[in-house]
C-alpha cells in the first residue's frame, strides 16, 4: 500500500474516532438503547465510495476497536463489531447498485443492518427474544439517522472529489 493512501486512511480513522467520541458525549434524544445518529458512519460511507472494500474494512474496524477502548465500554465491542460487520457487508454489496448520487440509500441500509446486527447479538447474549421488541423502533431511527449521515457523506464526497478534480486539472 502506498504511503499516500495509508496516511489518508489513518487520518480518516482518526476523524471517525473523534466524531464517535464526541457523539458519545451528546445527550440521548430518545431513551431507547441503540438509538443514535451514528455520525461516524459518514466517514465509512465516504470510504466505501473512495477506497477499496479492504481498505474501508481496515478503517472501520480500527475505528470500532479504538472507539471501544477510548470510550471504556468494552462490553459494547461485540455489538459494535456485529453491527459494523453486517453494515459493511451490506454496503459493499450495494455499492454496485447505488452510484454517488444515491449514497443516502447505502447509508440507510447500512444503518438498518447495523441495528439488526446489534439486536441479533443482544438476543444471543440474553438468550431471549424479548429485545426483538426494540427492533421496529430501531429500524425507524436507523432509516432517519442513515438518511441524515448519508446526505452528509454525499455532500462531503462531492466537495472532496470536486476539489481533487480541480487540482488535477491545474496540473
Amino acid at each position: 500500500m502506498k504511503v499516500n493512501k495509508l496516511t489518508k486512511l489513518g487520518l480518516l480513522t482518526c476523524l471517525a474516532l473523534i466524531i464517535f467520541i464526541v457523539e458519545l458525549r451528546l445527550p440521548d434524544v430518545v431513551p431507547v438503547p441503540g438509538v443514535k445518529l451514528g455520525l461516524a458512519n459518514i466517514i465509512t460511507v465516504y470510504c466505501i465510495y473512495t477506497f477499496t472494500p479492504a481498505e474501508t474494512a481496515m478503517m472501520l474496524f480500527s475505528r470500532i476497536l479504538l472507539g471501544a477502548l477510548f470510550s471504556g465500554n468494552l462490553m459494547a465491542l461485540w455489538y459494535s463489531i456485529a453491527g459494523g460487520a453486517l453494515c459493511f457487508a451490506g454496503m459493499v454489496l450495494l455499492r454496485r447498485a447505488a452510484d454517488e448520487k444515491n449514497m443516502w440509500f447505502l447509508s440507510v441500509i447500512g444503518a438498518v443492518l447495523h441495528n439488526i446486527g446489534q439486536i441479533t447479538v443482544a438476543m444471543i447474549v440474553l438468550k431471549s427474544k424479548a429485545v426483538l421488541g426494540y427492533l421496529p423502533v430501531l429500524l425507524i431511527s436507523g432509516c432517519i439517522a442513515g438518511l441524515f449521515t448519508g446526505i452528509c457523506a454525499q455532500l462531503v464526497t462531492g466537495r472532496l472529489n470536486s476539489r481533487r478534480k480541480n487540482k488535477s486539472a491545474e496540473k
Binding site: 462490553m75 447474549v125 424479548a130 421488541g133
Partner: peptide, 9 residues
C-alpha cells in the same frame, strides 16, 4: 419494549 440490562443479562 422490555427493560433490558445487557451487562447483567
Amino acid at each position: 419494549t422490555p427493560i433490558v440490562c445487557l451487562p447483567n443479562r
